[in-house]
Design a protein around this nucleic acid. Structure first.
Lengths: 266, 266
DNA sequence: CATCGGAGG
DNA sequence: CCTCTGATG
């Protein structure tokens, strides 16, 4: 099973572009694609996007127009789809959807992005506090049933110094705060998940998956690795290959994030 | 003296376009150009726009960012420039500027656009009520000094049935309300001004100078004549030629209005 | 169906 | 520096 995740920064804009999302979708070898920041309701999207031939599409837009929104594209029909993770505040926030596909639970997560000293950082903290227990329970249920799990998406946290280009300048910035990094450590150490891409690239800088549109961040590869495959150990052990589909090598840039694609031997 | 007037619908956007305002300005034979809806402050505009070689530029932006704004471009240095027409409410509204150029007072007017049943229609009415006395005084002063006057711009009123394509459907719409048309009649009959383009095209439909961006209004020539040269009779008598520079014949469309250009033998 | 501002990122 | 709203036209 090949799974890809990408924050599209507006699905309408991404699909409008000549060498954009639709071209990428037509060319990808992925079986399941997790999207974040779709920023659109079903009615705002063209037919090619909501019903591309060969794909089963699940949209989980946000309550607020033009905000957040996640989606799942699967070549195999999911056995079940669940929106949200049982916490009222984030039930309709367009931040979490999961599907059971061929015995694997695949989730698309868009964790709030935060800004230090603003209510958006508090929202991010509330999300993290609420989501960790859910992840623990998800793993326990999956383990009990012999099912594998992977939570793909934009976690909006770089875990370690190797996960962003200029870590020193960002130690007080949302996305690389000590408490955020510690929280992500708990996802791995306490909840028992594996950072799949890091496990395949243990000694690399990056590979980054997001570059600010500001300045020459992309040209200078001044990026962040904030898009993850966070998998149960059994699934992570089956990951044989991972790549970040950086624009230069995969056609034009149609988002500020690049797809993160992993081949699992399941 | 050749005078042209055009509502640019955002001077930044108009100047950004390849075949846009700057190309048009470089090609025009006009001596004076009146702009409306510049929607920008000086600091937001590039050098080529605020200081094109050979032009003296007067900007009269609005208090509110991104709203209204008028400007005058003149090849001859104006002897004097006056912003506003002495009424407090509209002093900084970016709706009126006049300049004395080679003995002629040329004004750029952007009359509020209004919408029936909203405060914006009331603002339009207040503007009309305040502006008519000013026009009367302007004519009187000019007449006493043997000076000619022309108030160019977007008056946001079609005067007669021949001045818009679908007049029947618009009798209750702002821009063709009986009271607005009557007010414009008073500008001509009481204040003693002449509708220059109509005087040169007495029996034509149009020529229209604005087409909505909505639908196929432009392709179907479903336009309105709301951009006028409103001149003192002495100057109007010298008008020898008028044209609306409709996009198709003058390069690509860079605004929803087209320049209205008149050759005066002065 | 454009332009612009401002929020969000 | 992008993508979205919503006001304005």
């Amino acid at each position: 099973m090949i799974i890809s995740t990408v924050n599209v920064n507006g699905l309408r804009a991404a699909a409008r572009k000549e060498e954009g999302f639709l071209r990428w979708l037509a060319a990808t070898d992925a079986d399941v694609v997790c999207l974040q920041e779709t920023r659109a309701e079903r009615a705002q999207l063209p037919e090619e996007v909501i019903a591309p031939p060969g794909w089963h599409v699940t949209l989980a837009p946000a309550r607020d127009k033009g905000r957040a929104g996640v989606a799942l594209y699967s070549r195999i029909r999911p056995d079940a789809v669940r929106v949200g993770f049982g916490v009222e505040e984030f039930a309709d926030a367009g931040r979490y959807v999961e599907a059971d596909v061929a015995g694997v639970t695949v989730a698309s997560l868009y964790l709030p992005s935060g800004e230090v000293g603003t209510p958006r950082q508090e929202e991010k903290e509330r999300f993290m506090a609420a989501f960790l227990p859910y992840l623990v329970g998800l793993r326990e249920r999956a383990g009990a049933e012999g099912r594998e799990v992977v939570v793909c998406g934009d976690w909006n946290i770089a875990h370690r110094e190797a996960d962003l280009r200029n870590w020193k300048a960002n130690t007080r910035k949302s996305g690389f705060l000590p408490e955020e990094r510690a929280w992500l450590s708990r996802v791995f150490d306490e909840a028992g998940y594996v950072d799949v891409v890091r496990s395949l690239f243990p000694d690399s800088e990056g590979p980054y998956s997001w570059w600010s549109y500001r300045g020459k961040a992309f040209d200078n590869d001044a990026g962040w690795r904030i898009d993850y495959h966070v998998a149960s150990p059994g699934l992570a052990a089956q990951a044989k290959e991972a790549r970040v589909e950086r624009a230069a090598e995969y056609g034009l840039r149609w988002s500020d994030h690049a797809p993160v694609t992993v081949h699992y031997d399941v």
